[in-house]
């Protein structure tokens, strides 16, 4: 923990972190899954064989049942004859946009609250951290459900709802570290030299916290992806016809006995993406946090 600012900066931007990440097979596998998903999301319009919103006449059997995976529709079709593969690729956009936006907002709110409470102490600390404790007492999913019920859900509202639920944990972690950093001699020295709070917070304390924030931001994307999928599965997340991995399952779950691919293929996609971010986040924690070394 006793690293200088320069060292921390170096390790956060150091190519060797990425090199060390690539040397771990699990983290490498996670990175590959993330890259594939990002590419699929970015290039979705050029990748998909069909329009994800079009209901194909030949996408259903004579009896009107969805088609299992075949040569024309690679992952089969859904209950109204839309191509599942195309919907899945477009669904990656939803998952990633929400994962990045919602988690980004959560990380910013959480870091600001944690760092402010940790540095200023006194009543600022008490008010902010008691509020954080209070929000921790609410089960994340239920709070998200209440918020989603209050606002009519859209992609951005879902992202906001998730951000408002997920900042709590990162605030706790950042707070603990910021508090111990504020006690250190170099902060005292800065203060003695007359540096303002803004300068100390952002030039001296924040750089030390970067590695912690990076780790929790990565792990947080996994949580966010799962929460979005769960909200969409319950029907209060991203609304159909916009495809999301969660709402594809929501739309088709009643037929899972006769059309299992409609549940398990999107389910596998959610699992793979969440697992990938968890694996990379865990490896980053090992690499960036020296106190954790030797425990794995």
């Amino acid at each position: 923990m006793s690293r200088t600012v320069a060292e921390t900066r170096a390790s956060a931007a150091n190519p060797s972190v990425i090199a060390r990440l690539l040397r771990r097979p699990l983290a490498l596998a996670g990175l590959i899954v993330i890259c594939v998903t990002v590419l699929a999301a970015v290039f979705a319009p050029w990748l998909v064989p069909f329009d994800p919103y079009e209901q194909f006449f030949e996408g259903l059997t004579i009896e009107g049942a969805p088609l299992p995976p075949n040569a024309q529709f690679w992952f089969g079709t859904d209950l109204v004859g839309r191509d599942l593969f195309s919907r899945l690729v477009y669904g990656a956009r939803t998952s990633l946009v929400i994962g990045v936006v919602a988690n980004g907002i959560a990380v910013i709110i959480g870091s600001l609250i944690g760092i402010t409470a940790g540095y200023f102490r006194g009543w600022t600390d008490t008010v902010l951290m008691r509020f954080t404790d209070l929000m921790m007492a609410f089960p994340a999913l239920l709070l998200a459900i209440v918020l989603a019920a209050i606002f009519t859900p859209s992609l951005w509202i879902v992202a906001m709802v998730i951000a408002m639920v997920n900042w709590v944990q990162i605030a706790r972690v950042v707070y603990t570290e910021a508090r111990s950093l504020s006690e250190r001699d170099f902060v005292m020295a800065e203060r003695a030299m007359g540096a303002g709070a803004g300068r100390i917070l952002f030039r001296h304390i924040l750089p030390h916290l970067l590695s912690t924030i990076i780790v929790w931001a990565t792990l947080g994307i996994a949580t966010t992806v799962l929460l979005e999928a769960t909200l969409s599965f319950l029907g209060i997340g991203v609304q159909p016809p916009t495809p999301s991995w969660g709402n594809i399952i929501f739309e088709n779950q009643t037929y899972f006995t006769s059309a299992p691919w409609l549940v398990f293929i999107p389910g596998a996609a959610i699992l793979a993406l969440a697992l990938a971010f968890n694996l990379v986040g865990d490896a980053l924690r090992d690499i960036l946090d020296p106190t954790q070394q030797g425990r794995h």
Binding site: L26, I249, F256, L271, A274, L275
Partner: peptide, 18 residues
Amino acid sequence: SFIGVSAPQFVIGILLLY
């Protein structure tokens, strides 16, 4: 255990049911 913490519960539930 990683799969356990990354798996959406509704998918696990439907999978076990299936």
